[in-house]
Amino acid sequence: MSGNITTTVTAARLRRIVNRTALLALVWLVVTEADTHSLVPGVPIVIAGAALSLVLSPDSLMAVHPMGALRFVRFFAVQSVLGGVDVALRAIRPSMPLQPAIIRYPLRVTGRWPRVFLTNTISMLPGTLSSRLDDEAIEVHVLDCSRPVMRELADVECRVADLFGSNLPPLEEEGAA
């Protein structure tokens, strides 16, 4: 039994080593613009980088669901453009429409990575900016509190959960809407 567990742990560890080395090799190729003279020095640098990363954070970093990631990238691309357009228009319009407020959004998603990821994502979306993350909630600064912010945040939270391969019910099912 214990031998079986050890094998699983070793396999997971091996997969982690391979993943990180491959990722760093890809980054090296991109950063050097695939210059042929940089390939040889790249080998020890990539290996050293992968070793260092395993020493610094031996545990799995982000277990991202591939299809969820694809859906998330599409969502994020559209929303961050909308976010930029929204705030730019508010800034240049002579009337400068602002109705700021600070709200607390109770978290449903669990785990440190999904929560930190959600906190950072919120800051790039239209009209919202994370100002505090604690054990139960994210405190969000809102540019225009007449918008349905809580529902928008619940939607973002669902998408972040989807990215990490888990499911959250939409907020409506909890009777909050």
Partner: peptide, 8 residues
């Protein structure tokens, strides 16, 4: 303004 507009 800074975070969203400049990143875009």
């Amino acid at each position: 303004a800074l975070t969203k507009s400049d990143n875009l």
